[in-house]
Every structure is written in C-alpha cells, then in structure tokens.
C-alpha cells in the first residue's frame, strides 16, 4: 500500500490503539515486516487479549484529549483465550452507546478484528481510521489536562 500523502490540513490527530498480543499486535508487526506504510499518528498499547481493555480506558483517553481510539483483537474463533473477544464486543457495544450520548462522532472510535496474518488489513484500517479522524479535525469535547 502506497503511503498516501493526505490532505490533512497539517493536522496530526492523537489516536490511541489497543492491540492484543496474539493477533492484532502480531498483524501490526507483519505490516512492519512487509513495510506497509501508514501515518505515524497512532500510539499502540498492547494487552494480552482484547478482553483486557476496560471501556473506562477509552473514556479516559477521550477525556484526556485523544482524537480517536481504536480497539483491536482477534477474529471470532481465533482468540487465544477462546472468548475474550466476545467479551470485548459486548463491552464495546455498551461503550459505543455512551460515546454516542457524549456526542463523540462514530468515526472517532472502532472495534476491529485483525489476525496475525493480516498485515495488509492492519495497515488499511489504520490508514482509513486516521484519514477519517483527520477529516473531522480535532475533538472539541473533553477536558485537557
């Protein structure tokens, strides 16, 4: 995938990405091994499983001025711990309702399944996510510390 030079109005969003050790983090590594370029506007936090991510972390991220937060893990059936990603999905659905009530645009958050073999998919998802957040501009809501 070619590194797209985006019409970003010079805006570098702050995007936090949670990745699980066994699939999506490995997919991100594969994107690296394959030299698939994407914008440097993300900071990845690794957990063992997507189920480890507490929705409160994501609320906290937005509160601290994140422009976007992406939650990633293994496809259903692939979770190293069997069903951690099903829990993640349940928690995400609840979180999405709250974020919606807070008036945070849908493009600023997401839950994505990426396997260890899907370097392409990782890179595509990051490219698209960053681009969408760039289009929205900085998030206005939220307290900055």
């Amino acid at each position: 995938m070619a590194p797209k030079k985006k019409d970003s109005n010079g805006f570098h969003p702050r995007i936090v990405v949670f990745a699980c050790n066994w699939c999506s983090y490995a997919g991100a590594d594969l994107a690296g091994v394959s030299r698939l370029q994407y914008p440097a506007d993300i900071r990845v936090i690794r957990t063992m499983c997507s189920g480890r991510v507490n929705p409160a972390f994501i609320l906290k991220a937005f509160k601290m001025g994140a422009d976007g937060v992406l939650w990633t893990g293994c496809h259903f059936g692939d979770c190293h711990y069997m069903f951690g990603n099903y829990r993640a999905e349940e928690n995400y659905q609840r979180l999405a309702k709250i974020l919606d009530l807070l008036g945070i645009e849908k493009e600023r958050y997401g839950l994505e399944w990426i396997s260890a073999a899907e370097g392409q998919r990782w890179s595509r998802i990051i490219n698209e996510f960053v681009e969408n957040v760039q289009k929205l501009g900085p998030k206005k809501l939220g307290v900055k510390s």
Binding site: P3, H12, A28, D29, A31, G32, V33, R35, L36, Q37, Y38, P39, A40, D41, V44, S123
Partner: peptide, 15 residues
Amino acid sequence: REQCSWVHSKDRAAA
C-alpha cells in the same frame, strides 16, 4: 521497528 521505523520510513520526523 515493526511498529515505527519500518512503517513510517518516509517520514523521519514523524517516526
């Protein structure tokens, strides 16, 4: 490396 230098290899400042 995998998640920085190799994926932002055309943007030294950002990397």
